[in-house]
Computed example of a mutant assay.
Amino acid sequence: MDRSRSHEEIRNRRTMNNKIPAGWLDYSPLNTWIENTRFVPFKCPLRWSILRNINKQDRFSLDDLIERMDNQGRKVGLIIDLTDTYRYYDYRDVEDMGIEYCKIRVPGHQDVSDKSCQKFFLVVNTFLRDNRQNDNLIGIHCTHGINRSGYFIVRYLIEILGQQPDDAIAAFNRARGHTIEKNIDDLRRRKSMNVSSSPSSDQEDDDYYIERDRPLPYSRPSIDPTLNDISSETSEMLV
């Protein structure tokens, strides 16, 4: 009896983990980067076990992201993941592509903390400092790549780069191809911080690849992902 219930729980968890995020199909994956910056916003890429449940033309994976940027003649050097879950893809797949990864967990439908924004500023400034010799882009995504992504990017444009709020909002909207819908009044109240954009020299703060931000979301399948399913229960993703 307990064994049967355990099997049912595993099956239910697999079904939940492989669900397409709500509203994900309603938005285009990617448009282009924000002019005069290295920011490129996009919706969250998904792993194969989720994508296989939707039509091919609607899929958007990490490979699709890289291909689309290659077609625009640019390379992504860092991905900042703002989703509040680890179920959408494995960060190790990002790093296997030679792309740096940073996770900042930001719950949806809630106010964004200043602490999270300060970490975002630090991560961006550190990457820019270490990549002066190239023009690699910083990919930013939440689930849809609009409201949370837009909030962080626009605050950076205003507070660090000194742009006017309406100009920063408009720049994001043009690049994303969708319009920020939330926190507009908050963004319009923001002002330039009038401080150097150089990141902190504090080693603990400067290291944004700390282990606690990078749990292993699931065991990689040892079989061809184009097959119908991953048979091993040990490959089931943990939320």
Score class of each variant (00 low, 15 high):
residue 1 M to G: 12
residue 3 R to I: 11
residue 4 S to W: 15
residue 4 S to K: 13
residue 5 R to D: 02
residue 6 S to N: 14
residue 9 E to S: 03
residue 10 I to C: 10
residue 12 N to I: 09
residue 12 N to R: 07
residue 23 G to C: 01
residue 23 G to A: 08
residue 24 W to H: 01
residue 24 W to A: 09
residue 25 L to H: 11
residue 27 Y to Q: 04
residue 28 S to C: 04
residue 28 S to L: 06
residue 31 N to P: 10
residue 33 W to S: 03
residue 34 I to W: 08
residue 36 N to I: 08
residue 38 R to H: 02
residue 39 F to T: 09
residue 40 V to C: 07
residue 42 F to C: 10
residue 43 K to V: 13
residue 47 R to P: 03
residue 48 W to D: 10
residue 51 L to F: 11
residue 52 R to D: 12
residue 53 N to W: 09
residue 53 N to T: 14
residue 59 R to F: 08
residue 63 D to Y: 06
residue 65 L to S: 07
residue 66 I to Y: 09
residue 66 I to M: 08
residue 67 E to A: 02
residue 69 M to R: 01
residue 72 Q to R: 07
residue 80 I to F: 09
residue 84 D to E: 03
residue 91 Y to K: 07
residue 91 Y to D: 01
residue 91 Y to A: 12
residue 93 D to L: 04
residue 94 V to T: 00
residue 95 E to D: 12
residue 96 D to L: 06
residue 100 E to S: 11
residue 101 Y to A: 00
residue 103 K to D: 00
residue 104 I to D: 00
residue 106 V to W: 12
residue 108 G to A: 01
residue 109 H to I: 12
residue 112 V to F: 02
residue 112 V to P: 07
residue 114 D to N: 00
residue 116 S to E: 01
residue 117 C to F: 14
residue 121 F to Q: 07
residue 123 V to Y: 07
residue 124 V to C: 02
residue 124 V to G: 01
residue 128 L to H: 03
residue 131 N to T: 08
residue 137 L to I: 11
residue 139 G to E: 10
residue 141 H to G: 10
residue 142 C to T: 03
residue 143 T to M: 00
residue 143 T to K: 09
residue 145 G to E: 00
residue 146 I to P: 04
residue 149 S to L: 00
residue 151 Y to H: 13
residue 152 F to H: 13
residue 155 R to N: 12
residue 155 R to L: 01
residue 156 Y to L: 09
residue 157 L to C: 08
residue 159 E to W: 15
residue 159 E to P: 13
residue 164 Q to W: 13
residue 168 A to T: 09
residue 168 A to V: 12
residue 170 A to L: 12
residue 171 A to K: 13
residue 173 N to F: 00
residue 177 G to K: 06
residue 177 G to I: 02
residue 178 H to P: 08
residue 178 H to G: 10
residue 179 T to S: 05
residue 180 I to C: 02
residue 182 K to W: 13
residue 183 N to S: 04
residue 183 N to C: 08
residue 183 N to R: 14
residue 185 D to T: 13
residue 186 D to N: 13
residue 187 L to P: 01
residue 188 R to S: 06
residue 188 R to C: 01
residue 189 R to C: 01
residue 189 R to S: 01
residue 191 K to I: 14
residue 193 M to R: 15
residue 196 S to L: 11
residue 198 S to L: 13
residue 198 S to K: 14
residue 200 S to T: 15
residue 204 E to Y: 15
residue 206 D to A: 05
residue 207 D to Q: 05
residue 208 Y to W: 10
residue 211 E to T: 15
residue 213 D to N: 04
residue 216 L to P: 12
residue 218 Y to I: 13
residue 220 R to N: 04
residue 220 R to A: 03
residue 220 R to Q: 08
residue 220 R to Y: 12
residue 221 P to C: 04
residue 223 I to Y: 09
residue 224 D to P: 00
residue 227 L to H: 14
residue 231 S to G: 10
residue 233 E to W: 15
residue 235 S to V: 12
residue 236 E to L: 10
residue 237 M to W: 15
residue 238 L to H: 01
residue 239 V to G: 09
